[in-house]
Amino acid sequence: MYLVKVTVTYKESILDPKGEAINDALQRLGYRDVQSVELGKYFELRIAKSDRPIAEQVAEMCDRLLANVNMETYDYEITEMEAQS
């Protein structure tokens, strides 16, 4: 079993109005050192081992569904979990 953590964020060229609104709110709370806020999505997947390389599967899932590659970019971290007893 693998634990896969995927984050999806907007590409740099894409405006993130929600992130900007959150940055404005942080400024109102007095956190003047905050330079920017980017709001993204976080997914946790538990995936059973198979013959297919796990990274290849995850990248495919991101490309096909979890991210819209027109405007988003993704990153993932794969850790192998010990088999449940």
């Binding site: 405006l15 993130d16 109005p17 929600k18 900007e20 819209n68 027109n70 405007m71």
Partner: peptide, 8 residues
């Protein structure tokens, strides 16, 4: 693609 409105 369609993104969030600029004004949010």
């Amino acid at each position: 693609a369609l993104r969030a409105n600029r004004s949010s």
